[in-house]
Design a protein around this nucleic acid. Structure first.
Length: 187
DNA sequence: GGGGAGATTATCT
DNA sequence: GATAATCTCCCCG
């Protein structure tokens, strides 16, 4: 498997969000194939970088190729990959492929479809927390491997936001059984 | 299997 | 003091 290089994230955030579908994300000994992402950039009212730098979003304004991890609803962690110009891709779902037993233990379920099918779930499954905020994606415990083939993609509106809710910036692998939610049927 | 309430806290206004 | 890029459980049918 070929590792993803630094050039990968120095592109338009929507290009990266699409290119990530099919990419393998490893964290320690656990990981899987990315099947769902969302894109955010500073012109987007739903983005954390909208309105300029703050203590929380500082990593988004730093170098690309790093993890932006934030805490939400007082309960969950969410993992993002920083791209250029204070933009980032939210990793929303994985198809589990490595370290299933460890992920099942952390999640409290053996059902592979419940391990990583949501941004909060996959952080819990992999053991990602705020201590990993700002870490490089090219160094352990992170590793990213290029996809072999480009999978079929579906686009839709993002989930769980109230601002700019109409923008089609959610991307998923068509027909995957490991999405956080199905995409609406066309028509 | 679908809808709604509640959990629980860092961050910003 | 309100809000938030979520998840799970409980109730209803």
């Amino acid at each position: 498997m070929k590792a993803v290089g630094p050039r990968f994230f120095r592109r338009d955030v929507d290009i990266v969000a699409r290119a990530l579908i099919g990419t393998t994300l490893m964290f320690g000994a656990s990981g899987g194939i990315i099947v769902e992402t969302e894109s955010y950039d500073p012109t987007d009212p739903a983005a954390h970088s909208y309105g300029g730098p703050t203590k929380r979003n500082a990593v988004m304004f730093g170098a690309s190729g790093h993890a932006y991890v934030y805490f939400i609803y007082g309960v969950h962690w969410c993992l993002n990959f920083v791209c250029r110009d204070a933009s980032a891709v939210l990793i929303r779902a994985l198809e589990p492929t490595h370290g299933l037993a460890a992920m099942a233990r952390r999640r409290g379920t053996d059902d592979p479809r419940k391990l990583c099918s949501g941004p909060g779930k996959l952080c819990e499954a992999l053991g990602i927390t705020g201590e990993h905020n700002g870490r490089s994606l090219y160094a352990p415990p992170f590793a990213l491997y290029r996809r072999m083939k480009e999978p079929p993609l579906t686009t839709g509106v993002r989930i769980g936001i109230t601002k700019a809710a109409h923008l089609p910036r959610r991307y998923g692998q068509t027909g995957s059984r490991f999405l956080s939610r199905p995409f609406p049927e066309p028509g």
